[in-house]
């Protein structure tokens, strides 16, 4: 029986601190996960899995602020560092140790760029944390509705090339008893969805094709039932690409967490 998100008690760090408690992990939701309608569904899927696995977690809620990733990639180091230092002050005040993010951009920034500014934490992308839960026996994934379906995984640049994590998402998908196929460009050779480096927030420069269409062509060539993603921006880009090709009834674009949620009927 699928649960409603409103049936789950979602603590903020402030609420937990007031009770004198410390959660196992801070779930860093991210701006897309907080505000973008499609990405909010991913956020809820992650929360449902964490809840199902009895993980003690909390969010920062209104105390969370953009990590500064898009500002930094676009060259605005000032704005990035302002954001970073504000977030670090908040997280250090709560003595945060372990962070799980729903977005590889937040993951990369907090993991790699916050330490030099005074924020050192153990940071995991949600696919890595879910893999840990699986290895610890806290999360059991067996088949479910994706059994026998053809699935391909689109590597997010900031999880894959930027941080060398190619296996965690695939290990999770393997558990769904699906047919996992690779696009012609995958892993270290994966093609960007076109959203990184601030591109999400601007018009593309002049060219002869949109990057997300180029990537969607890789998807269409493979004809999968599902394209699995691990990033809210890749989600937007590929969803748009599939829709533009009028294939949205044949090919679903889903985050790994959403697939696990559905396979387990959470």
């Amino acid at each position: 029986m699928a649960t409603n998100i409103t049936d789950i008690k979602i603590n903020t760090m402030a609420e937990m601190a007031a009770k004198g408690e410390t959660p196992e992990v801070l779930f860093w939701v991210g701006c897309a996960g907080s505000f973008d309608d499609r990405a909010k569904k991913i956020t809820k899927a992650i929360v449902k899995i964490l809840h199902h696995c009895n993980v003690s977690f909390a969010v920062l809620g209104t105390e969370e602020s953009c990590t500064g990733d898009p500002a930094k990639r676009a060259g605005n180091e000032f704005l990035f560092q302002m954001q970073a230092m504000t977030n670090i002050q908040v997280m250090n005040a709560y003595q945060v140790k372990k962070i799980v993010t729903g977005c590889p951009h937040c993951f990369n920034t907090i993991k790699n760029e916050y330490p030099e500014l005074g924020g050192t934490y153990e940071v995991l992308h949600h696919s890595q944390f879910l893999q840990q839960l699986m290895e610890d026996g806290r999360l059991k994934i067996e088949g479910g509705e994706f059994k026998g379906k053809k699935i391909t995984f689109h590597d997010p640049c900031y999880l894959g090339r930027a941080n060398g994590e190619y296996e965690a998402p695939r290990n999770l998908l393997q558990k769904l008893d699906a047919e996992l196929s690779e696009m012609k460009r995958s892993r270290a050779n994966g093609l960007c969805c076109g959203a990184g480096g601030g591109q999400m927030f601007k018009e593309a420069e002049k060219g002869n094709k949109e990057v997300n269409i180029e990537r969607t062509d890789d998807v269409l060539e493979l004809k999968p039932d599902v394209v699995a993603v691990g990033c809210p921006f890749c989600m937007t880009m590929l969803k748009d690409g599939v829709k533009l090709n009028e294939k949205e009834n044949e090919i679903e674009v889903l985050d790994i967490s959403e697939m696990i949620m559905r396979a387990k009927d959470l």
């Binding site: 409603n4 998100i5 409103t6 903020t12 939701v29 909010k40 809820k44 809620g61 209104t62 969370e64």
Partner: peptide, 9 residues
């Protein structure tokens, strides 16, 4: 920021 937690799909 936390409105998603109050919205059922």
């Amino acid at each position: 920021r936390l409105n998603w937690a109050k919205e059922n799909d």
